[in-house]
Design a protein around this nucleic acid. Structure first.
Lengths: 222, 222
DNA sequence: CTAGATTCGAAACGGTTCGTATCGGATTCA
DNA sequence: TGAATCCGATACGAACCGTTTCGAATCTAG
């Protein structure tokens, strides 16, 4: 990546031009777009440079001029892709703020973007650069918003000051990703809502909750 | 899979022999073993039938006689693989029972078996038969043990009777799998322990816990 | 024992894809 | 104008896929 960026800097930056024909930004954008399209359609395993080059109407050598291999191209395509705005309103209730964000995550994962995320995490088990791209571009932006929500909750006295924020976020978001990747059970906004409540309130009986009557009463036997 | 099993039945079952040379159980076992070995070493993406056949000292045609493609072979190898005994002692405390099981899951995922699980889930984003094998062979056996723990907790009055058991298990185990697959943070037994406590006790302030002083006081700012 | 059926591993086959090289044309700059 | 670099198209050798062929091996039935 660092090398690809250095190459971009040396050829696309007007102040540091190499002495020949400049690289085509048009070709680059086509390649990135085709990569995401085919990644979504075929997944990482079946994705091929040949197909990307054909879809983007470029030569294979052009692809290899910019990126050393498939994983690097996919990671760059993902890092370059647009991400919807992640800001959420401050409703004044951490419970409601988190619930909103978690529900939005479910919606995203269930859509087109979700198929790319799945391919990225799947391929990321073989190539760490893909997982890194996922963290940087998808996970951490969401997580930073959620940190703000948690901190507001702590300063408003809603949440315990001693909370491990990372662990708390894992507890809130981990199950959503689990259902998304493993598909052992339905991934719905209702699930996100109930999950939020359950993690907020805990599961043990000494809990004396008076104003958060859980709507999650369904007990299923597998 | 059903086809492969039908083939096995017709050639290895002494009562229903096809009229010629029997298939070699020795070759089959070698193939399954090589598959797991190479899957652990190279991951699903890089795994090749050529390499498996060479490692197992069999012909490629032998591999294709038993299994239609790579994914089917990997799924079968995983389903056929030994799994350590999953029984846990009933300590009388659901908190301790769950904590023990969660810590054991962390240990397994951090070991050799974990690398296979990672490859399986990764490949499973492309081919659903791998995810299915993972659920059947790894996830559900653990989950069924955990259901027992939860039910004991409910009948002992430790846990709320209205709990959604599936959601609760997702909350307990989802974060472990998340850290395992995404690697955004450390996956330790201490994490499993604190996670268990946090999910048990909840995160909101009205929690009046007297005898479960959380050992999870570390608040990290990212 | 022989004949027929099935499986074995080795080898070969045509096709696809990888990563690289070559080429003529295109695009820059000095 | 010449040099340098990039473009897409094409070709190349290697690796692998999934399939086929072959002689040998292993079974059963007559």
């Amino acid at each position: 990546m660092a090398m690809a960026q250095a190459l971009i800097a040396s050829s696309a930056n007007p102040e540091h031009r190499s002495p020949g024909r400049p690289r085509s930004e048009h070709a680059r954008k086509n390649i990135l777009r085709s990569t995401l399209r085919l990644l979504r359609k075929d997944g990482f395993v079946e994705l091929s440079i040949e197909a990307i080059a054909a879809d983007a109407n470029v030569g294979k050598a052009t692809v290899y001029r910019w990126w050393p291999n498939k994983a690097a191209l996919v990671a760059d395509a993902f890092l370059s892709s647009a991400e919807a705005d992640l800001r959420f309103p401050n409703t004044g209730s951490v419970r409601r703020d988190l619930s909103l964000q978690m529900k939005q995550l479910v919606r995203v994962l269930r859509g087109k973007r979700g198929r790319i995320v799945s391919a990225l995490i799947g391929g990321g088990q073989s190539d760490a650069s893909l997982i890194k791209a996922f963290r940087e571009r998808f996970m951490m932006p969401r997580r930073h918003e959620a940190y703000e929500i948690l901190r507001r909750g702590i300063s408003r006295g809603e949440l315990r000051a001693s909370l491990d924020l990372d662990l708390t976020l894992d507890a809130l978001y981990g199950p959503i990703y689990l259902r998304f990747l493993i598909r052992h059970d339905a991934l719905t906004e209702q699930f996100a809502c109930c999950l939020c409540s359950t993690v907020m309130d805990g599961v043990i009986v000494e809990r004396q909750s008076t104003n958060h009557k859980s709507a999650c009463k369904v007990t299923r036997t597998n």
